[in-house]
């Protein structure tokens, strides 16, 4: 039966690989191909223009601005979100005060309630989250400025999304808020599988909570953190950042290009300006950035796997 082995394996692989090639690889190749044309997206005729789109992209100030913002998203958002999520899930699972007769490690009081609360934003569609925050950021009657007025800070009434210095941070805050819950749940699941006797031993040795976190929790959770990092980076470069920028910001992408990101730029070029070929060019740049990001994270995060 040895000779039939490969046929057997191929039989199983053909279907999924075929689907993958057709629906993932082929569109990628096509997009790259179209980035060398002058296709408008509105008519079937186009011609090859060589590297014109690429030279144009390198001279395009808005492209560089959007690249800069996307990179900032890719670096900062995972950092903030994952740090917060690690902190929250540690407090929920391990950080609690030891109660008489209770288990050795437990979360803070009411941790099961917090777990649900943190996960809540995940249930809402990102479009709804963005819309809700757009209301909250309304400088005239939004929740945030009303709150500021309510506590007597009448002079502090920022324009939030209307201020080029604040707008990008406002957008990032929304992304952190809406995604942190998912990672809390993800890391909680990871922490639950860490054997309690490791903690017990550490506590007997007199380790503080901070030490247990850095010496036990984080190393044993490293794989999860790493994939979470890549996932969050892709969210920050891709659809999620598009949704919030498109729905919330001035213009969108403003004020004065202060919030434009690469995905938004792709969308605007393809669907507003009728320059689908140029949009695919930016798409190719986005592909390069995303792959580079994933490669860097994987490379930096490489560690020996711990067995327990």
């Amino acid at each position: 039966m040895q000779h039939g082995k490969y046929r057997f394996i191929v039989g199983f692989l053909a279907m999924p690989l075929g689907l993958y090639a057709l629906f993932v690889v082929w569109p990628f190749i096509q997009s790259i191909y179209y980035s060398f044309t002058d296709w408008t997206g509105l008519s079937p005729d186009f011609k090859m223009v060589g590297l014109d789109n690429y030279t144009r992209m390198f001279d395009d100030k808005i492209f560089w601005k959007s690249l800069q913002h996307s990179l900032l998203f890719a670096v900062l958002l995972p950092l903030v979100t994952i740090s917060l999520a690690l902190f929250f899930s540690f407090m929920i699972n391990v950080g609690g005060r030891r109660r008489r007769g209770g288990p050795v490690v437990s979360g803070v009081r009411g941790s099961s309630f917090y777990k649900i609360v943190y996960f809540f934003p995940q249930v809402l569609s990102i479009a709804i989250v963005a819309l809700l925050f757009a209301f909250a950021y309304n400088p005239d009657s939004g929740a945030i400025n009303s709150l500021l007025r309510g506590i007597g800070l009448d002079s502090v009434q920022p324009l939030w999304l209307g201020d080029p210095n604040l707008a990008l941070w406002c957008v990032m805050a929304v992304l952190v808020w809406s995604t942190v819950g998912f990672f809390v749940v993800l890391f909680s699941a990871g922490m639950a599988s860490i054997p309690a006797d490791l903690y017990e031993a550490a506590l007997l040795d007199g380790a503080s909570r901070v030490t247990t976190f850095f010496r036990i929790t984080l190393p044993l959770l490293w794989d999860t953190v790493q994939s979470g990092w890549v996932y969050m980076g892709i969210l920050a470069l891709g659809a999620e950042s598009f949704a919030v920028v498109q729905i919330m910001t001035t213009g969108p992408g403003g004020p004065d290009y202060s919030t434009t990101v690469m995905v938004l730029y792709v969308y605007q070029k393809a669907f507003r300006d009728g320059q689908a070929a140029y949009a695919t060019t930016i798409g190719v740049a986005l592909l390069v950035v995303t792959l580079a990001f994933a490669a860097i994270v994987m490379r930096l995060g490489r560690r020996e796997r711990l067995e327990y």
Partner: peptide, 27 residues
């Protein structure tokens, strides 16, 4: 409005742009 914007999400990614373009050559 909200609905269209969220719908726009679906049109976004690079692969999708490829799909649209797939139509171009078949015309």
């Amino acid at each position: 409005d909200l609905i269209k914007r969220s719908a726009a999400l679906g049109l976004l990614t690079l692969p999708t742009a490829g799909f649209l373009s797939a139509c171009a050559s078949s015309g």
